[in-house]
Design a protein around this nucleic acid. Sequence first.
DNA 1: TTCTCAATCTGCAAAGAGTGCGAACTAGCA
DNA 2: TGCTAGTTCGCACTCTTTGCAGATTGAGAA
Lengths: 147, 147
Amino acid sequence: MKSPAELTDTFRANGLKVTPQRQLLFGLMHGNTVHPTAEALFAEASARMPGISLRTVYQTLTDLASMGELRLIDVGTGATRFDPNTDDHHHVVCSSCGEVRDVYVAGSDRLKVDGLDGFQIEEASILFSGTCVTCASDTVSRASARG
Amino acid sequence: MKSPAELTDTFRANGLKVTPQRQLLFGLMHGNTVHPTAEALFAEASARMPGISLRTVYQTLTDLASMGELRLIDVGTGATRFDPNTDDHHHVVCSSCGEVRDVYVAGSDRLKVDGLDGFQIEEASILFSGTCVTCASDTVSRASARG
DNA sequence: TTCTCAATCTGCAAAGAGTGCGAACTAGCA
DNA sequence: TGCTAGTTCGCACTCTTTGCAGATTGAGAA
Ligand SMILES: [Mn+2]
Ligand SMILES: [Mn+2]
Ligand SMILES: [Zn+2]
Ligand SMILES: [Zn+2]
């Protein structure tokens, strides 16, 4: 995703207005690596700008996505995650707490794939799922406490 | 997924009853390769057994899934897909019509993956998306019609 | 600076996909 | 044939996201 300053120019250049709400969200998303949900961003945004609406958060986020500045990610935890990292990358999600992290995969060009005949492929995404360090140690703690 | 006859035994052996609703769903899912949604199955089931409830379809499907007989798949089209194919396989979804097909991938063990440190991985799924033959030719047809 | 109006924001209703609950029903065993 | 634990069904409700419309405002024009 471009920087807030660059986005400001891009928006104006496209006849879109640069509102305080948008600027706030530009800032909250820039460099954000946690893959937040709309609700999570709404909570952060509300802290800095009481009164901002969840509707506007969704609006701005989907606008940025359709401009190619954000990626919408579905890791199967219910709500869509928003990602300012537009590199070619994949994800890993903790099935316990829902944490999402970036995963870079090399060598996927050498995979032997069977079943794509007839399809004109646009993209391939790999989703890893498992338990993050925090949740793994929590489990250990509870086990110790019990036994 | 086991055959309807085998499932009947398995269910009884586990103290679960074999109802007409369950038998119908065993039959509808056995060998089913379309990755249907609960609503789609409900429609098929209703045709054969008027009065069956969507609630029961969901119930039976999730029961089968927790017994490991069915896989729940999220291809990002909104509703969960149900898959009786428990082989280790992946999927491709048509971004236009939502059709889902099986994809077998070999060589994934040789991928170079970076970013999984700390995670205890339980599974990795690859989702391809693109345009299926039907939707591709539809697009061509419309283009021709226009000029 | 003030004017003007398209673009934006907000609140609320509503849609899509499931899930929790409890009353009525029934498969399977004695 | 009866009993009862397991099921089914309908309905209310949650969660996530979108549609709508009236009130508000950014930013170029004058
Ligand atoms: Mn990412
Ligand atoms: Mn499949
Ligand atoms: Zn975790
Ligand atoms: Zn298609």
